[in-house]
Each structure stands twice: as structure tokens, then as C-alpha cells.
Write a protein that binds this DNA or RNA. Structure first.
Lengths: 201, 201
DNA sequence: TGGTCTTTTCAGACATTCCTGAAAGGCCGA
DNA sequence: TCGGCCTTTCAGGAATGTCTGAAAAGACCA
């Protein structure tokens, strides 16, 4: 009779990978279990059932269920059904670029959008009052920066993978292209200043 | 006698901002206190001492000390001294672009580099063994992706702010530029495949 | 309807992180 | 060296977060 508490063996490579993802979890804003489940699905050739995950990772069934729920909330795993099988089968998208896009989108939604909303509301409300001069400038600066970044992001998110690859591979050479068309477009002036004293931290 | 537990009043605007940063802290991988301290420094026209932070936010002195230590580990605050004053004065860089660069650098260091290292080591070691075919492919795919992204990032990090702004403002128009020079440079082929079935999650 | 297989919920045990006051440490001028 | 001022360390209480087994809920078939 097999010991239900010991995980089914994984190859050393997969084992290392899964454990690493678990440990990195906290830095990525997910917990160990969720990281491990994701890692396992990522390297699995075929979709896995929740019970298979339990067997490989030695977690409780309920924990796996919650972990999968969280991964679904992140749009990071997909659910599939097999004919004649009631169980849910889980997998990650094969296309790694799709994963990057999803990750970027979800992190933006959780980490940027709320702040942008808050800044917008507060700046709109307090624009009239002249108090808080410096703080208000500072907040507007941050607001404009985030708008610029998210605007660029949404443009890039729309690119086909092929074009995105071009852009990434271009890398430093982009500088050349930019030097060619050497004209700055209309920008909020406050984002353009570069203070000399800010070189050293 | 003033109640030492009640924070010195902040303007409503600053108050909202500070509390928001505190609450977002968990999503950003820092704790509430650290978020609040950073927010306060960000909107302060002049550098603040630890005791001033205590007075404004109503935190314990030791907590502020630890929070500032963490912010320094992130390179997000700078320490200044005033002649004839022994106390440390803290501030954030004035140049908001400098802040973005620092943030990107530190997050990369904490969230990407360890994984890249782990992938490199494991792939080098297991390259010979033919086992684990799919997992190994998958890991190499992730490795190549991270290399590409960090390579691009390091190129962009080198750009002057003016050029970076150009790049960001260009946004969707970048597509046009790319269409012009329509040739894909030498890429790892496995990063280029785009599977049709991966459109739906 | 009852029986089987599967997923989800949830109370509470366990673990981790956060925060504080008290004490220790460091620096400087007298 | 002492005393004042400021910062850091640290033990342990408070607050959060994680994980589990047991029970409930849902889905399907006969």
C-alpha cells in the first residue's frame, strides 16, 4: 500500500523546476502551492487532473482545488474536458507568448490600474484648490507617467507575435531608428525634465 | 499634552495617496508600512527625518526604521545629512524616470534573475540526457524567452530619458517602422512558432 | 430517487509576517 | 570618559496567510 503522503517521483529536472517556482512564489505575489502547481502544468505534455497534481506534489486535494481556482482567476490555466471522463483536466497554453501577454495584462490590472484610477479621481477633485502645491504636482507627474506607460503597453499588446519579436530583437538598434526621426512629439512638459542632481542614490 | 498615538494631520489629498499606497503594498511585494513611508516621502517637498515620518503616519519609531532600511535596500530612497544636524533625512529622487529605472532594475533582480540562473544551470546539466524531452523543451523555451526580454530591457535601460520618451510616445506607430524593415533577424526558431489552438483560454 | 464520482467550501490548526516597546549600539562634543 | 541624541536590534504579541480533513454541494447515470 503506497504512502499517500509521499509525492509520486518527478524527474530531477522537473523536481528542481517545481520547487524553484514554489519558492519564487512569494516574490511573484502567489503562494508556494500555486507556484508549484503552475510549474508542474507548464512542463506537462498533457493536461492533468487535480488528483494527478495531488499525487505528484503531495498536497491536499482541497489545497490543489484552491490553487487551481486562483490560477484560473489569473487566466493562467485552462480547463478541458475529455469525452467519457467527468474530471476536469488542466493545462497551460502551449504558446509561451500567450502566457507573457496574459501575465502582463493581469499584473497591470492588479498593480497599476487601481492606482491610476485613484490618481485620476483625486487630481480631478483637487485640481481647483491651490493647496498642496508640491504634492499635487508630484501626483500629476506620476499620473502622466502611468498613462504614458499603459498607453505604450496597450499598443504593444496589440502587436502580433512576429512584430513583437522584431521589436525585442531590434533592441539597442532602436536607438538608431529613433535618431533618424529626430523630433519629439507633443508631450506633457513635466515628464520631459531631467534633473542633474538625480544621478546618485 | 498631545496624544502620541494620533498622527499629525495630513491634507486629504496626501492622506488618500498614502493610504492607497499602503493598501497596494501587498500587491507590490512590500508591506503596508513601507508603502506608506514611500508615499509620504514621494510627495514631500523636502527630506524628512524618521521622527517626522513617525509623527505623520502614527507608526512606531522602530517600524519606521525598518521600513526605511527596506526602502534603502530597494534603492528607492536616498539618505541626506544637514550640516549641524545629526539626524538622517530621507527623500525620493526628484526625477520620476530615475524611479522607474530603479524599480525595473530591482524587480528584475528579485523576480527574474534567480529563475534565469536556475534555468541556465539545469539546462546545461541535463542537456545530454534525452529523458524529459518535453519538459526540457519547455524549460529551454522559457529560458530563451527570458533572455530575449532581459536583453531588450538592458538595451532600453541604457537609453537616455529623452530617447526613452520618444520610444514610448511612438507607441502604435512603431508598427509602421517595423513594417518598413520587414525582415526577421536570426532568432531561436522555437520562440517564433505561433500555435493556432492557443487563442482561447 | 439513490448512488457514485468529483469539486468546492470552511473551521480551525499551523506558519509566517508585521509591528511594537524596551534595550542596546553608535556617534559626537564636552 | 560621560551624557545626550539618534538609530538599530530583538523578543514576543498581534495580525495575516496557508493548508488540511471533513462535510457539503454538484453532476451524472441508472
Amino acid at each position: 500500500m503506497p504512502d499517500r503522503k509521499v509525492a509520486l517521483p518527478l524527474s530531477p529536472l522537473v523536481q528542481t523546476f517545481v520547487l524553484h517556482f514554489g519558492e519564487m512564489g512569494s516574490r511573484w505575489g502567489i503562494n508556494r502551492t500555486v507556484g508549484q502547481i503552475y510549474a508542474l502544468l507548464f512542463v506537462s505534455e498533457r493536461p492533468l487532473t487535480a488528483d494527478e497534481i495531488v499525487d505528484h506534489l503531495g498536497l491536499s486535494r482541497s489545497n490543489v482545488s484552491m490553487g487551481l481556482k486562483e490560477l484560473q482567476a489569473w487566466n493562467l490555466v485552462r480547463l478541458q474536458h475529455r469525452p467519457g471522463d467527468r474530471r476536469d483536466h488542466f493545462s497551460t497554453p502551449d504558446d509561451i507568448w500567450q502566457i507573457v501577454r496574459t501575465l502582463a495584462e493581469e499584473r497591470k490590472k492588479r498593480e497599476i490600474d487601481p492606482t491610476l484610477t485613484m490618481l485620476r479621481e483625486n487630481l480631478m477633485q483637487d485640481a481647483q484648490t491651490g493647496e498642496d502645491g508640491y504634492a499635487q504636482d508630484r501626483l500629476r507627474e506620476m499620473h502622466d507617467l502611468l498613462e504614458l506607460l499603459t498607453g505604450w503597453y496597450s499598443d504593444v499588446q496589440k502587436l502580433e507575435t512576429e512584430r513583437l519579436l522584431q521589436l525585442l530583437t531590434l533592441g539597442s538598434k532602436v536607438q538608431k531608428v529613433l535618431e533618424a526621426k529626430d523630433r519629439v512629439m507633443g508631450l506633457p512638459a513635466r515628464l520631459r525634465r531631467s534633473k542633474a542632481q538625480d544621478t546618485e542614490v
